[in-house]
């Protein structure tokens, strides 16, 4: 069953960036993971896909044409069978797994496969392999503990996968995303009932100049 209780969503700018293909890999991973849990954001992403479809259909062609033999070449390509799929086969039955499908692809399995490393105070993290420009990691905070002060160097998004945390901005449970920037001072505390597992993505400092105030404004509308 779909969880209907997600209260904190991704911003339109991030969802549109996912559809247009302009986000760094780590942010794409955040969107793919959130959308796996949130049909509202999935519908928004697919609406932005539809904008892309209209742009593709109606953009001026400026004389671009396919070469003369290209249809035959494509039929030959087709008879050679499908292109190799880069994506690994996913575990079946991911609906109730802590890690949504796209995250399972990055840890090559479920929660048991995550290679945690302690970073102090009982907190553990696992860096996920993404391209440079932004980083992605899983974070585990013991039940009832405060999240370590990790300092924001730019845009940072945190999505809860298990448990919950609360801070000045509210209560964040599975599927909820908190968007923070470098001006933000907050002290999240994990819910007492369960260890809190989050996906955290952060950009490199330079890229999102001017983007941050807007994204926080949009987030604040929720």
């Amino acid at each position: 069953m779909m969880e209907n209780t997600i209260n904190h969503h991704l911003t339109d700018a991030v969802l549109m960036g996912y559809a247009s293909g302009s986000l760094p890999e780590a942010f794409n991973l955040m969107v793919a993971a959130h959308v796996s849990l949130c049909d509202s954001c999935r519908a928004q992403v697919e609406s932005y896909d539809a904008v892309g479809g209209e742009v593709l259909d109606n953009a001026p062609q400026n004389g671009v044409e396919m070469t003369e033999s290209s249809f035959m070449a494509t039929m030959a390509l087709i008879s050679g069978g499908p292109l190799d799929e880069a994506a690994p086969a996913r575990l079946q039955q991911t609906r109730n797994a802590v890690l949504p499908g796209p995250l399972q692809d990055y840890v090559a399995g479920g929660l048991d496969e995550v290679k945690w490393r302690g970073i102090g105070m009982g907190v553990k993290q696992a860096i996920l392999p993404t391209s440079s420009g932004a980083s992605a990691r899983l974070l585990m905070i013991p039940a009832g503990a405060a999240m370590p002060d990790h300092g924001h160097h730019g845009l940072e998004m945190t999505m809860v996968l298990q448990g919950a945390f609360k801070d000045e901005d509210g209560y964040f449970a599975r599927g909820d995303v908190e968007v923070a920037d470098s001006d933000m001072h907050h002290t999240p505390i994990a819910d007492i009932h369960e260890d809190c597992i989050c996906l955290v993505v952060a950009d490199a400092r330079l890229k999102f100049d001017g983007f941050l105030p807007k994204i926080v404004q949009r987030f604040a509308r929720i």
Binding site: M16, G17, S20, S22, V51, F208, D209, G210, F211, K214
Partner: peptide, 11 residues
């Protein structure tokens, strides 16, 4: 959509 905008322009 053709990849020419920065994130701030997309916003």
């Amino acid at each position: 959509y053709f990849g020419d905008l920065t994130q701030s322009e997309i916003a």
